[in-house]
Design a protein around this nucleic acid. Sequence first.
RNA 1: GCGGAAGUGGUGGAACUGGCAGACACACCAUCUUGAGGGGGUGGCGCCGAGAGGCGUGGGGGUUCAAAUCCCCCCUUCCGCACCA
Length: 682
Amino acid sequence: CPECATVLANEQVVGGNCWRHEDTPVIQKELEQWFVKTTQYSDELLRDLDNLEGWPEKVRTMQRNWIGRSEGALLDFKIDGPTGRAGDKVTVFTTRIDTIYGATSIQLAPEHPLVADLVGSDPSLLSKIEDLIAEQKKARDQEEVESMEKHGVFTGRYVINPFSQEKMPIWVANYILMGYGTGAIMSVPAHDERDYAFAEKYGIDIKIVVLPRRTSEPPAPGEDEKPMLPYTAEDSMLINSGEFNELSNEDAMKKMTAYAEQHGFGKATTTYRLKDWGISRQRYWGTPIPMLYCEKDGVVPVPESQLPVLLPDNVEVTLQGGSPLGRIPGFVNATCPKCGGAARRETDTMDTFVDSSWYFYRYTSPQANDKPFDTREADYWFPIDQYIGGVEHAILHLIYSRFWTKFMRDISLVHNDEPVTRLFTQGMVIKDGAKMSKNRGNVVSPDDMVARFGADSTRMYALFAAPPDRDLDWQEAGVEGVHRFLGRVYRFVMRNASAALDRSSAQPVTQELSPKVRQVQRKLHQTIKRVTDDFQGRWHFNTCVAAIMEFVNELYAAEDEISAGRFPAPLLADVQRSLVLLLEPFAPYLAAELWETLGEKDTLLRHPWPKYDAALAKEDEIEYAVQVNGKLKARVSVPADSPEDFVREQALADDKVKAALEGKQIAKVIVVAGKLVNIVVR
RNA sequence: GCGGAAGUGGUGGAACUGGCAGACACACCAUCUUGAGGGGGUGGCGCCGAGAGGCGUGGGGGUUCAAAUCCCCCCUUCCGCACCA
């Protein structure tokens, strides 16, 4: 990244740009760098995703795609005619070995090493290939890869198809990537879209070798024998494929791979999109890579007794490229631990993602001075029960830290296979349809809102606006509502706190409650349950807030009971304490203030969460919806726990229901306990 | 192209295992607070319709006594990956 003046890993390039500078295109340079062999764990990283049931499907899928496993075969094609330094054959990777009899050319990436051999003597060809390379680079830089027109150059040379022994022309094409597979493909125009387009353009042979039907099934009468081209489905049968004719394509893949292995020109293989992790960074701030370069002994690791390598102070950061550490002789000059001679210290530092891959393990033993962390402590705490972060780390931090855990397990530092059991990805804050970012200039600081409405209102509004796993389109409208609500709470407590100040209010309520007061009590316990459940289980803080609002509305509706003296002081005190406790996670400042106002002396934070009492939450009467053929006709109230027969009776006795039933015959009556009655009529 | 998520009033969003669609808010309307504005209180507010009633969760089919929710097809939006051979 030119802006960071440092190297980036594959994962840190987002759409051709730097992950930290989203409008700065990365440039490519050849450099010698340190890599961590993440690919060693490709298979395990992929396989274990199936067990991460506490992770969002989206993240698991993104990781699967990123690892990009694909099974296929490597096949050698002998080059016809003189060869050079790159050898006498071309190895291609294919997932469709069954179509090899339909391969009518070989396509090489422009950077393929063989290209130089093949075109060495033809300068006009060479310049055309350089054009292809330049074109690929430009398309990548400008993110126009998909719209780039496919074209290529015939090298004038041929290979021999190891199955059919036919001669196949070798082309160099701009759509072949050196970075995937072997940088060379066998082109099967009849059964691959890109190959088809390419062959059409250059008049390369198109040979159909699979048909869209199964071996056992005869061709349906009137069915077209020839498939629509290109025919890429795999539910098919082989033709024009020598001894493999009439095999289903699964069988053909197995048999042809075995054949290639027996004859020594191919083998089954699995490729991955995941690359090793380049961790060298040309930054001052970073963990030094503890390696030395000795002229005599080569690359020598810094001995454990000399770890950690500490960064020097007073470094000038110039952004000139290369590590700033390289200009500090005191840091660079070292002694070779093997021969005692002069050695040069590695001046690149590690990617920050190295540190973030295991920082949480350090939390388990922050005092450990002679090791990263204590394994026993890590065993006690790990894996992490619940991890929270943005989905933007799905293929960065979250894949690196999984890798790091597996590596540490293999060197016996930890005993867990995965770092995190449950992952929660919170949504992004969107403004005007775009992710908020400094580069876009659409960042809305919460400070203005805090200044106008206070931190409590701002926080609570953010929680109320949407559940936290969803993206939130930030808009100012709405915060007033939350602010008003907190005002309502404040005024209610200010008016009624005196009830709580009388210490005798700790006494249980003995007197008979008026219906309105009983309703408040009931609503209180229903609210405690709703808030507790939504808070613990689903993390739906918006519905928690809504529930508390409903409760406060209920309190306002009962204020006349208070002024009429029909609201027992102990209950009123309990109601207010519970309200403040419920509010505390959402509006901590106001809650603390009200807690004091209620005369409480202990710290609000340490006070136990209010208890839900099922008996007090219970409704005395339940309203049933009465439907006729699924359409709502009436509502009837019955005492809670009424037997089904009674509910049915009451429903059928309702006037509106009777009217709806007139002249109809009742076929069935369904009673859903506590909910509704559905009368099915003919 | 592949994969993921989502589509519910004017708006943000509720409806948790199929059971009263629209909780709670915003906006809007009415009303009270001696006038206006502000603040506060109370009430109204899916659509069509005078009403009875009908319609209604992106569209179309299906399963069911009952569908926002389950199944099939299609459309749209957002996100991720991608000449992946």
